[in-house]
Amino acid sequence: MKTLSEIDTTSKRATRAAGFSWGIAEEVGKNMRLLELFGLSGIKNLNKYLKDYKQKQLEKITLIHEINESKKNPFCPIILGTNFIDQVNLMDKKRNIRIYNVAFPVLFLPFVSRASEVVGKRIFFKLDDKEFLFNLNQSIYSNYLKNEILENCESISIDFIENNNSFTEVEWKEIYKLSENTFVEENESLKIGAAGAGLTDND
């Protein structure tokens, strides 16, 4: 089994060899480590992408808007991802971002996972019919488990999820009440002696 360190280093070098800058290659190295750690097919997709990308003349997105449509060729996932993570703090006020026609979209996923950590919000991500929930770069929850090469996708939808509880206040109160059953009711003697602090607060 290849180690994550080997995956990182080799992906970085391969990306540089394909013509990207060292700084972007570093991003890709970290991303491949992340994808493989989370059990997604990073190397498989990167390998095919690096073979194809010069012929495909992928479109390089610059500024990311709410709606992003490629003019002719699909968007390059590496340039899209790099700009997404660089600009995420400038765009998280936008509730929903849509990107149409992206090549090798699996390679975009780790950028979004890391962006979730950068903005401190979970991100709900839809890639055609595949759903992903990015949890602050701690885990990826998804209905997509195929180990395959995804050469293209028609549309990507990105929602930044506000930091709200997933439960109601009533549910919280109920569970809190139950937790109180681990506390000891203090009598006078316990109130005086058990805290360890001084008896006068204003001395």
């Binding site: 972007i24 500024l63 700009n83």
Partner: peptide
């Protein structure tokens, strides 16, 4: 100018910006 926007045209120096 925000760094995120500066980098759009200057990714060749991304490693030293980091």
């Amino acid at each position: 100018l925000k760094i995120g926007k500066f980098l759009i045209e200057n990714n060749d120096l991304r490693h030293v910006v980091r």
